[in-house]
Structure formats: structure tokens, C-alpha cells
Amino acid sequence: MQPIPVSERWFHIVNNAFMLFLAAICVLPLIHVVSISLSSSPAVASNSVTFWPIGLNFYSYEKALEDDQLIRSVWISVQRTALSLGLGLLVNCLAAYVLSKGGGRDGIAGYKGIVGFFIVAMLFNGGMIPTYLLVTKLGLYNSIWALVLPSVVNVFYLILIMNFFKALPKELEEAAFMDGANHWQVFYRLFLPLSLPVLATVGLFLVVMEWNEWLMGQIYMKADNVPLSTFLKSIIAVPVIDASNAADAAKMNNRSISSAQILIGALPILLMYPVLQRFFTKGIVIGAVKE
């Protein structure tokens, strides 16, 4: 092992310190939010909570968890996220594989037209009403597929994956074809394992997106079938406060509840992240196929 130069050692010290500083400024607001979610209504309302709960209580979590709807909504969200993740990765990766071949001799006819087709789809949309009409006409209203199918194709991720595919060494692919593999086999045996980092990234983004999306749930589902995000959003929404509900409003402790809502909503993803993290570790993938 070569000795590490002094300048480099200093770089590492400064760099580590800087990284920890960044971590701190990112985690402090979250601690603040956690503290708020655990604090009493008056302490929150008077803005006296900083990084430690005042008047510790679990009212907000109880309020969010007491409703039977929560379990149903979590289940809907899990189904929706799983289906969207599976279908999303499959459909987008397949399309990305095809498009990564370009329009030449290796690819498909009409390449440019198809790319344009997707780009336009990424930019333009018809708005809420026509989409709602379509979903109801297709008989998808109040079905889990209403939450999944419309957002399966995500052009941004499609193009991202496609660019990763393009960067893969051509030699491997050619060798596989030489050995008699067809496109499906090359896709499944070669491309997918080689692009685990990008698949993990896109997978994570998809999960975050689907887990937090609430509008479709609000529009396409009946009240007892809404996903978690929609449900949580509805219980934290602040009513217009007037004479008839002022006393209730004083008890409701809205900021605590909305903080609890954020944490409940983000928790599954925060738990998932460390699992996915190993895919971002340098070199693991290429190293594995180097031989």
C-alpha cells in the first residue's frame, strides 16, 4: 500500500467534517418535526418546541392510528406501490432496452417517431376531467388499477434507464448474441443484472412517488378505499375555524398531527433506504461480471 499523501489526508478530514455538517442541517428539521409530532397542542401552537418534545404525548399518532381506515389504506398503498414498482420497472425497462438500440440496424423502425411519442406524452396532458372520464369509462373507478395503470409509463425514468443501458459495454451483448441468446435473454440475463444501481434508483423513486401520491386516490377511489397518502391528507386538512368548531380546533393540534402524518408516510421508505443503499456502493456490479 502506498502511503496516503498529507494533502489527501487533510482532504478526508475536511470532507468528512463537511459531510457530517450537511447531515446535521438535514436532520435537524426532521428532529424538529418529530418533536412537534410528540408535543402538546399549546406548546406547538405557541411555537415553543424546537428539538425536544414539550408536554410529551402520543395523541397525534393515536389520532392518526385510531381509525380502522388506516389499516385498509396502508394495505391499498402497499398493493399499489408493489404493483406500480413491478409493472413500472418491467414496462419502462423493456421499452428502454428497445430504445437503447437506437434507430439503426440494431434497433426498431420508427425510432424517432416513438421517442417523440414519449416525449410529447411526458410534456402534455389532458387534465383532470378527461382522465377521470376515461378511468370511469374503462370501469376502473374504485379499483386498485386506477391508481396503478395511468402512471406505469414514466418517460423520465424510461429515458434515464435507456441512457444507462446505452452505456453498457457493447462487447458483452455481442458475445451473448453470438452464443445464440435472443433479446429477452440478453435483457434479462445481461442488462438487468448490469444495471442494478439504476434499477435501484428508479425503483426507489417510483416507490417514493407512488407512496406519496394522493390526488389520484382522492379522485378515483371511494372514501373507504383511499390509499394512505390520501387518507392522511384528509385527516390533517385544517377546517375553516368558526364559532361552531373553535373548541374542537383547540383540541385538534393540527401541526402535531400533520407532523405525525409526514413521519408515518415517510417511514416505510426510510426503512427501505438502507436496504437499497448497498446497490449504490461503488463497483459492486461491474466487479461481479468482470471475470
Binding site: S40, P42, A43, A45, S46, A247
Partner: peptide
């Protein structure tokens, strides 16, 4: 309402239930 609850406000206008909300929150602290 936050400022009222934190007890820093001397005078203001508000409907007749002001002491119920946010007044009760101010009283707690």
C-alpha cells in the same frame, strides 16, 4: 393564532370565540 398562543400579542380584533381558540392554547403555556 400562533402569535396569540405564544402570548406576545397585546391587542387584536377577532370573533367572539377568541378565548376558546386560540386563547385556550395561550392559557396552557
Amino acid at each position: 393564532t400562533e402569535n396569540v398562543a405564544s402570548g406576545k400579542v397585546g391587542m387584536l380584533g377577532g370573533e367572539h370565540w377568541l378565548m376558546v381558540y386560540p386563547g385556550s392554547l395561550m392559557l396552557a403555556t
